[in-house]
Simulated scan of single mutants.
Amino acid sequence: MRPLPPPLLERARALAAPGTRRLLGIAGAPGAGKSTLAARLVDALDGLAVLVPMDGFHLAQSELLRLGRADRKGAPDTFDADGYAALLTRLRTPPAASTVYAPAFDRSLEEPVAGSIPVPPDVPLVVTEGNYLLYGEGPWAAVRPLLDEVWFLELDDVVRHRRLIGRHLRHGKERPAAERWTLGSDESNARLVALGRDRADLIVSMD
């Protein structure tokens, strides 16, 4: 694995100044490398940051089925955007001596799991990553103002599609279904994600 680019690490380290709380967002299309970069940044910051993915706010599969949205899982209206914004608000101003708990997304279950990620009050930086941090429609419009800085990741579409197909295969889809989902639902979501590119503080090429 290639080392983290020093300018990215130093930029994140500058946000992780002890004594204050800042939020760094990492956005981009499905398969662009958001979760990998976010996790590596948090690991490199060695206790100065906690990762809180947006994916913890996926609606449960039972609710997606009830709403008739299960075939569009990953679209903006298949998340609890209001809940995500509310958590970011709490994380910006953490209560003294109180840990805030965030949900995670368990890919083996394909379900969110509440209370999975502890965020202690003395951690100066929260890194959050997801598709719709820069999306300006509906309840998602409340998210960007809560983030001190947002990076937008870009990756060649051919490489991104190959990664997504591989991910779907690992999680149990047959290849034809993995390819249909990647070029259908995932690509529709990627077009929505791209609408927010110009609202980012930094564009990061992942090629």
Rank of each mutant, 00 (worst) to 15 (best):
P121F: 04
L87H: 02
P6R: 15
L48D: 14
V193A: 05
V50Y: 02
R191W: 10
T182Q: 10
F57Y: 14
V150L: 02
G130I: 00
T20A: 15
G56C: 00
D71K: 09
V193W: 01
H161K: 13
R180M: 10
Y135N: 09
L8A: 07
G31R: 01
L109T: 03
E111Y: 00
P121G: 03
G31E: 02
K73T: 05
T89L: 09
A14Y: 06
T99G: 07
R13I: 10
I165E: 14
D122C: 12
L155C: 09
V159D: 10
A190D: 01
G196N: 01
V204G: 09
R90E: 15
E129T: 03
E129H: 05
T36I: 01
L164D: 02
P7V: 11
A104G: 15
L192V: 04
P121V: 01
P76Q: 09
L146R: 14
M1G: 15
R180L: 12
P76W: 05
A14Q: 11
V143T: 12
G184V: 08
V150T: 13
L59C: 12
E129I: 00
Y84L: 06
V42Y: 04
P103A: 06
A32F: 05
E10N: 09
D46N: 15
A142F: 01
D207M: 03
A141W: 00
R144F: 03
V126Q: 10
D71H: 14
G28Y: 00
A12F: 03
P18M: 06
G47Y: 09
A85F: 06
A194H: 12
R191E: 14
T20F: 11
A44F: 04
G166N: 12
P118F: 09
G166P: 09
R22V: 02
G130V: 00
D55M: 06
A60I: 05
D55Y: 07
M206S: 13
D77A: 07
G83N: 13
L65T: 13
D157S: 15
I117G: 09
